[in-house]
Structure formats: structure tokens, C-alpha cells
């Protein structure tokens, strides 16, 4: 029987959650025995090759590409997990939600704005190439865009949390994480 497949992605995240996944250390060998990786930065597969058992989502949706990728994950994965606070709440990127989009751009790119960083931009251009995905009006948590099956909180969730959750899901056991793995103080 073919091994079940796992896909992962980082949307508006910092890759910290992926780093945490790598923190499972030598257990990664066990994981490779258990599953194949499909679309994921881990193996650099860009598009889905088939149906996946589990999709891990890091980061929320900040732009249209994030939405497209997330919807693609929903189409291809049986179980979708929001991993970490950005996927669950929007996290740090969502701090811009209180500021109008135009002001965000000005703050980032305009040299008129003395509060902005010292970028050399004499024409006050805001990057606008069709290749660049357009930003959404605000950063959305993943479950507002597609249905999410599980949420693993943490910034990032510890490696043990990720490991226990993955193993439980892949072996059809209930995800009953001990208190130590989901407490964060």
C-alpha cells in the first residue's frame, strides 16, 4: 500500500513553523517511513501531484496568491491543519489590519513619509507589476477562507506537538494532545 502523503506550505508566515517541524530531529527519518511529502518547501514540489492525507498550513492569507494556494490545499487534502498563530489568528502580519491599505504602502515605500524606512524611491512608486500578487484588504486567518479541520496553536507550535498530532492523524487515532504540549506560558 502506498504511503499517505503530506503537503505543507507557508503563506503569510515566517517559516518558523516549518523550522519547528524540522525540530523533530531524528524522528524525521521515522516520518519519512510513515509518509511521502507532496507539495511542500521541504522537497520543493511546486504543484500537487495527487490526493494528500494531511495539509499543514503556516501563516494566514495576506494576498491573492495565499488564497489561491490555500484553496488548492483544501481541494487536495483530506485534513487541513492551521499550524501556528498566523494561520489561526493572522498573527504579526495582521497588525496591519487596523491601518488602511494605502497607508501601509506609503509607510513602506514612500520617501515623502519621513516616518518610513530610508528607501531610495524618488518617484514615490508603489510596486505594481502584474507578477506581484495583489494584497487583500486585510490579513485573514485561514479558517475564514476555507474550512479548517484542526488548529495547532503556538508561535511556533513545539516540534513534539506537531509530531504527536501528525502521528495520531496518520494512524487514525484521536488527536489527544497532553496538556504540556498545548500550554504556552
Amino acid at each position: 500500500m502506498a504511503k499517505p502523503k503530506v503537503a505543507t506550505t507557508s503563506l503569510a508566515g515566517c517559516f518558523g513553523c516549518h523550522m519547528s517541524l524540522l525540530d523533530i530531529d531524528d524522528r524525521i527519518l521515522k516520518l519519512v517511513e510513515l509518509v511521502d511529502f507532496d507539495k511542500s518547501p521541504v522537497d520543493d514540489i511546486k504543484e500537487f501531484t495527487g490526493r494528500c492525507a494531511v495539509g499543514l498550513i503556516e501563516g494566514g492569507c495576506a494576498n491573492e496568491e495565499n488564497v489561491r494556494v490555500l484553496q488548492d490545499f483544501r481541494r487536495h487534502c483530506d485534513i487541513l491543519i492551521s499550524v501556528g498563530d498566523c494561520a489561526i489568528n493572522g498573527g504579526i502580519p495582521a497588525m496591519r489590519n487596523a491601518v488602511p491599505l494605502k497607508e501601509c504602502f506609503q509607510e513602506a515605500y514612500s520617501t515623502d513619509n519621513r516616518l518610513g524606512p530610508a528607501v531610495y524611491n524618488p518617484d514615490n512608486q508603489i510596486p505594481n507589476d502584474p507578477e506581484i500578487p495583489l494584497l487583500l484588504d486585510k490579513v485573514y486567518p485561514c479558517h475564514e477562507v476555507v474550512k479548517i479541520d484542526y488548529h495547532l496553536p503556538g508561535c511556533p507550535p513545539p516540534a513534539d506537538t506537531l509530531w504527536e498530532a501528525l502521528v495520531a492523524l496518520l494512524s487514525d487515532k484521536p488527536v489527544a494532545l497532553p496538556y504540556e504540549l498545548i500550554k504556552y506560558d
Partner: peptide, 21 residues
Amino acid sequence: GFQPTFDIHAALQTAEGIAGR
């Protein structure tokens, strides 16, 4: 599996206005 409440066109409206496309 998609959320019917999420409207990508509405969410992109502001950015489309700024980008002019």
C-alpha cells in the same frame, strides 16, 4: 470546503483601486 462568507473580489477591491488594475 470553501467558506461562502469569504469574498475574494471584495477583499481585493482596495488593492485594485491602488494598483489601478
